[in-house]
Design a binder for these strands. Structure first.
Lengths: 203, 203, 203, 203
DNA sequence: TATGAATGAGTCTTCATTCAT
DNA sequence: AATGAATGAAGACTCATTCAT
């Protein structure tokens, strides 16, 4: 039949669509995609179930649009942070900033993080989104380094490894609670390692 | 609910329960927890749907028991590999062996890997299982190193970082296909990094 | 329910109502009453969904008004054909003309025909409409015959039977495709039969 | 996923499936396919909604299976009537018998008749079923005539026309109530016509 | 023990109709 | 008069779990 998805033009309608995405994505992140239903989303967004299907093809659509809209906030808020570019007076600063950012970030959207991470492993589109942004992030960091005088000697690969190290560290710090792991030491080791990684490129 | 779960005593009954765990876990890994139903599991195991509820509280139980029984095969097959302990004539060998193992392993149970990884991020019990085994693995490697003369200088933390590096590398190699990433280089960088990590401890 | 149906007075409003009837009836005929929705109709008519309910009580109303306005075009276009009256130089001509008309007619609005036929069998009002017009048609033919000198010897019944014969023939010719049926023969037989029917009345 | 339609093996299950078909088809015939829902059917059959989907792919399936099982009873009960073959002592008898049968038949399952007739015009599979059985009926009558000494001189076509005449007559008698139509006369005319149709073939 | 038929609450989605603007 | 956003009841269908045998 006729395509019934409407792109809202009016301000109120746009706000409503936004609200559905925001609240829907939020619920999905908090409770899990399979644990919430369209009625929950409608209720959370303060709309009727029907309206959802005028703005979205299906429940899955809400997830995807939510991801596009809020995914960066959860996974790569640095991508949006203009200041990021500026204050790399020394390398340690950058690393420290990144670690702190990652941790802060994980802590803020702890659950969301995990639920979406979950879908990265089970849903093609979510995975695609994530890996694309991960690459953006990698390139973004690389650019910062280059513009700070780093030699581009396999920089992409190095940055990618660095991000992995940081991500693992943060994940460990926040979730694992492997009791006998000394996170202060671990952080120091990771920083040393990153520095070693770039030792020949740094200006 | 009255607890009617029976622990099978007879050989045939035990085999039946095993079969449910094996086939059920297999299906869950291949298709995803939410994409298979108890009938599918029953059919695959060659039993009736009813019998499932004499051995398990619910569908979720099958996942958990499957994880306990087969989780190591998927995530940490090295833990069961006796030979692992023996042939570390030099450090490079160990690292190489681990990388190859990880990759082989990922490739063999690619889908299972991803589906369970997904649940690690959304299910507390699965996560708990995973992190516990990850620690076992860490300790196991640590023991190997110690018994090969490594100094225990924050060894736990170092091994953990190493495992993270390897895991990230392998994941990248197998899934990401970030086109412009040079994986040969990346592998070299990772190995160098690991060596740097242990540079003061190696005998 | 408060009766808020407005009979449009202004030219533009009248045109709008007409358009809803025309396009709505068209869609219903083409796709089936249950397969189109009011949004489809509104879109096809170039109006808003809301306005429909100012001119019609409900979706069903559109069908009925469409039927009244366009039903004859689909089922009994001869009723509107002025020339019909004139050129019956001989009886064979009339029969042939009718058969050809029926077939042409079926072919033109093939789908509409079937969809409305369907409703004749399931909807009282549609049935009523159809049978009334069928009677009009019968009487109209009867008048033509009488004005051409036929004796009125159970003419109504005979014309009715004739129309049934023609309708069946045409339906068979167009739809059935009963492979081993010889339609040329069938047509001849039907014509013979009709002639036999009127053998004592013809002038 | 795995195909879940079950063909019931146990007596009780078979009976249940039968009951769903019978009551479901009945409801569809009485109320119209679009006016009943699966819950109605389940309730009428004394089962749960879930069980329906173990025996049928969907609601539509019930219609089709009902048609296959009970369609003949509604449209062509003569096809099942063994006595039909025997007592054609004269032609008038056959015709009379057929007319009476048609009428009785229409009267018994009046509504069913109409609802299914409706679907013949809007659903391909229903149409296909009907036309196939109509042909069976035609051939069956033809065989009876041949075995009673009729010459096969375009017999198929003639029988088809005859059936059309009878069907129209009966339909008129039962539904139309065209007040000023004399059905006694009409019946006589139809019989005469049929006889004329076969005048050269009768023994 | 075991079967597999049966349950029915719960899911996503549609759409005639209403309502705020 | 007109718009089109919004409603929410209703529909088809699924599936973890229970139950009669």
């Amino acid at each position: 039949m006729i395509d019934t998805i409407r792109e809202p033009k009016q301000k109120r309608a746009i706000e409503k669509k936004e609200r559905i995405i925001k609240e829907g994505f939020d619920l999905i992140c908090k409770e899990g995609y399979y644990n919430i239903n369209t009625q929950d989303i409608a209720k959370a967004a303060g709309v009727s179930t029907g309206i959802i299907y005028q703005y979205f093809n299906d429940k899955y659509d809400i997830l995807i649009e939510g991801l596009e809209k809020y995914g960066d906030d959860i996974f790569f808020p640095m991508l949006k942070d203009k200041d990021y570019k500026l204050d790399i007076d020394n390398f340690d600063n950058l690393i420290n900033k990144m670690i702190n950012n990652y941790i802060k970030n994980h802590k803020i959207s702890n659950v969301a993080h995990e639920e979406i991470m979950s879908m990265i492993h089970s849903d093609k589109n979510v995975a695609e989104f994530y890996y694309k942004r991960e690459l953006d992030m990698t390139n973004s960091i690389k650019d910062i380094l280059v513009s700070n005088g780093f030699k581009d000697n396999n920089l992409t690969e190095k940055v990618h490894i660095m991000l992995g190290l940081i991500d693992n560290l943060c994940h460990e710090v926040i979730y694992h609670k492997h009791d006998h792991m000394d996170y202060k030491i671990m952080e120091k080791l990771v920083i040393d390692n990153i520095k070693n990684l770039f030792k020949d490129d740094i200006k």
